[in-house]
Simulated assay, not measured.
Amino acid sequence: MTGVVVGRRGRRPAGSGVQLTFEVIAEALRERIRSGGLGAGDPLPTQAVLMREFGASSLTVQKAMTLLKQEGWAVSRPGKGAFVAHYDHPADDLDGPEATAPAGGTAARVEALERALAEAARQIADLRGRVEALESDGGERGH
């Protein structure tokens, strides 16, 4: 034996190129997202489904999901599950990993906040218009 242990504890020699099961699961899900099989906002397979599909333990699946979330590929919605994160579409002239990597989780949150802010501004403008209309109608009646 060469002293290399790959298995229960997930140890491997540095630079061996051997992927651990959680990395295999994460890469499979990344590929589904890159290929369009899973789109932004789509639910990711449940833990039970991934455990069956990859013959993995719940801890292994959880590690894969944690990795995807840390990298910005997935987001959790408490009580609902994990979903594909919204990501920026790269410029057409990019090649390589940068062309398919999602924006980080922060970018997705900023995008969501910007949409919410735009919606709030629209609602405020609508309410302001209603108030002005009510005030002008009330002013005409009072004279």
Rank of each mutant, 00 (worst) to 15 (best):
A121E: 15
L134Q: 10
V84L: 09
A64C: 03
I124N: 08
G72A: 02
G41F: 07
H89A: 15
A108C: 04
E111S: 08
P102N: 08
Q123A: 15
E71D: 12
A107Q: 11
V131E: 05
A40C: 07
A108Q: 06
A101W: 05
D42E: 02
R128Q: 14
P78R: 12
L38Y: 10
E111V: 00
A48T: 08
L134C: 06
G96M: 12
A103I: 08
G105H: 07
V49C: 01
S136G: 00
D92W: 06
P43K: 03
P45T: 07
G96H: 15
K69S: 04
K69M: 09
T106M: 15
T46I: 02
I124R: 15
L68A: 07
L38N: 07
T100G: 12
R122P: 11
V75S: 13
P43W: 08
R77I: 10
G39F: 03
D95Y: 14
L127H: 14
D42F: 04
T100H: 13
F54Q: 00
E135A: 03
A85C: 08
S76R: 15
T60V: 07
V110A: 06
H86C: 08
G96E: 12
L113H: 05
A56E: 01
T60W: 03
I124Q: 14
D88T: 12
F83E: 10
Q70M: 09
G39Y: 10
L134P: 01
V84F: 06
G79N: 12
T66Y: 02
A40M: 09
G96L: 11
G41P: 01
R77K: 15
A103Q: 06
S76T: 15
A40N: 08
R77W: 12
T106K: 13
D93V: 08
A56T: 01
K63D: 01
D92E: 09
D92L: 04
P43A: 15
G39E: 08
Q70L: 07
G104Y: 06
G104C: 11
E111D: 05
A85L: 05
R128W: 07
E71W: 06
P78T: 10
A120K: 06
D93S: 05
E119Y: 11
V49W: 05
A121H: 10
A116L: 12
F83M: 13
A112T: 05
L94G: 04
G72T: 02
L68P: 04
G79H: 11
G72Y: 05
L38R: 13
S58I: 00
A40Y: 02
S58H: 03
K80D: 13
V110F: 07
L134F: 10
E111C: 01
V75M: 13
L44A: 03
S57I: 02
R130M: 11
P45S: 03
E98W: 09
G96D: 12
D126Q: 15
A82C: 15
